[in-house]
Design a protein around this nucleic acid. Structure first.
Length: 466
RNA sequence: GUCCCCUUCGUCUAUCGGUUAGGACACCAGGUUUUCAUCCUGGAAAGAGGAGUUCGAUUCUCCUAGGGGAUACCA
């Protein structure tokens, strides 16, 4: 049997990391089993669904390369099919018309609460004759649920769980305006799409007992369920704006790599022994439903950031340079020249071990883009006092005579100068760094001077002298 | 209220009855280094509480507490 999984978000808000992880698990499980991964947009709540949210979902998945097979399915386009099945259930006697008003229903719930029972619909129209129907009320269609016994779900993650059927009520499958409810739509869509494994957040777990009633009434086979625990904010509560509740695209915006995001999300709730760094390809080989934990996790930005630093350091210089180019173009409206990009690429080894995000990396290499005279930050200005400027002026003479512009020679040259003049290396290196980069922290000095080239380096030092 | 689920270092997690309870992030202390970072070494840090079952419980059972989810003519 071919494995078919799906991700079924509703476009009512941004795509947060909890949703992304659900998508990732579905995608991985499909890939791991040579199956297919489908996307279904559950846009039947017309009031709350927006096109922006839909775009955000699509873009988020694309950013992470969580590609879905075939075109995405829009649930709203399948309403007639849902209605058809709903009416079929009515005809076969598995469902019935209910003429209760919202007020009656509210009253019913209130009473149940007072009597410490589950607030459920009492099934009053289950056996009533339709002739008793009140005038002018369009009925809803409710499904008949078993009133005694147990309903059992064998969930791959949650285990074998049963609830008493008297906890269930005859829930609505078609509204009074004839439109289907979520409960009906998911079941019909999952069935029609041939979904074999439903992997979703465990906020859907209790719904599953209801959905099973529809499967039974239709005599359809149940898919395999895996309800994965939810992700919470660092405070243990709901994901808040501060951590994680942001749309996934904002992590792209903050300079996080998709590799890091995927690796981070994968390890939230799933593990493979002590393995922490897991690539997409490895994940496809290793992923399984059995190793998903049952307890919820908290979103930890520090951890994501550390993973990000790791993936930046291991990414090749060409690709990083391109990301930097895009960063300047998109965020600063600066077009980096081919020559400057080459400097950045050549200086990348010194840059990338220092950055935790692409944004940091981009900021860090700004001195490669500048031309003398360059701007100086506060700390470098402080370093460049009169005494240090005279020191640089003196050293300038020696450096300008250096012919072989390689880091080893540059290092040698600087060290010899310090030795001959009986000063500490740092005494010369710090002012030099300030003059050449305009910063007090930078990649290795010899490396960056080499990359910058003789002319530009000397020009920057000379400029400080002026 | 009712039903369901969860609970190992601050965080993510390993452990399939017997371990000095392991790893990673973060943190602290050293080392390498021209700065910063990387890197290396070391350190502190956990089984929610209480009963059982067992020769032996983090692991199995129950209770309590705490947390989460579900209880819509939302999805």
């Amino acid at each position: 049997m071919k494995v078919i999984t799906r991700f079924a978000p509703s476009p009512t808000g941004y795509l947060h990391i909890g949703g992304v992880r659900t998508a990732l698990f579905n995608w991985l499980f499909a890939k791991a089993n040579n199956g297919s991964f489908k996307l279904r947009i559950e846009d039947t709540d017309i009031k709350r669904s927006t096109n922006d949210a839909k775009e955000a979902i699509l873009n988020g998945l694309k950013w992470l390369d969580l590609n879905w097979d075939e075109d995405e399915i829009y649930q709203s386009e399948r309403i007639n099919r849902h209605k058809e099945i709903g009416n079929e259930l009515l005809k076969s006697g598995h469902a019935y018309k209910c003429y209760c008003s919202p007020e009656e229903l509210a009253e019913m719930r209130e009473r149940a609460r007072k009597e410490k029972r589950a607030p459920r619909y009492n099934g009053m129209w289950r056996n009533k004759d339709e002739k008793e129907a009140p005038e002018g009320i369009e009925p809803v269609i409710r499904i008949k649920c078993p009133q005694s016994g147990l309903t059992n779900i064998n969930d791959v993650v949650q285990g074998d769980i049963s609830i008493k059927n008297n906890e269930l009520d005859d829930f609505i499958i078609l509204r009074s305006d004839g439109t289907p409810t979520y409960m009906l739509s998911v079941v019909v869509d999952d069935y029609d799409m041939g979904v074999t494994h439903v992997i979703r957040g465990d906020d859907h777990f209790t719904n599953t007992f209801r959905q099973k009633q529809i499967y039974s009434a239709l005599n359809w086979d149940l898919p395999i369920y895996a309800h994965i625990p939810l992700i919470h904010g660092m405070d243990g509560g709901k994901l808040s704006k501060r951590h994680g509740a942001l749309g996934v695209e904002s992590y792209d915006d903050m300079g996080y790599l998709q590799e890091a995001m995927l690796n981070y999300l994968l390890r939230l709730g799933w593990s493979y022994g002590d393995k922490e760094i897991i690539s997409r390809e490895e994940a496809i080989n290793l992923f399984n439903l059995d190793s998903i934990g049952k307890s919820s996790a908290k979103f930890d930005l520090e951890r994501l950031t550390s993973l990000n630093a790791h993936y930046i350091e291991n990414k090749n210089n060409e690709e990083l340079a391109l990301l930097i180019k895009n960063f300047y173009k998109d965020k600063k409206n600066i077009e980096i020249s081919v020559d400057d990009l080459l400097l950045i690429k050549n200086g990348m080894n010194g840059l990338k071990s220092r950055a935790r995000t692409i944004n940091e990396l981009a900021e860090m290499c700004s001195f490669y883009i500048e031309k003398a005279p360059i701007s100086l930050d506060k700390k470098s200005k402080k370093v460049l006092n009169n005494e240090n400027i005279s020191l640089l002026r003196l050293y300038y003479e020696q450096l300008s005579r250096l012919d072989i512009w390689k880091r080893e020679e540059i290092e040698e040259d600087i060290k010899i100068y310090c030795k001959n003049n009986d000063i500490n290396l740092g005494k010369l290196a710090q002012p030099l760094r300030a003059a050449v980069t305009g910063k007090s922290v930078s990649p290795g000095l010899y490396e960056l001077i080499e990359v910058l080239g003789k002319d530009e380096t000397l020009a920057r030092i000379k400029n400080i002298n002026n």
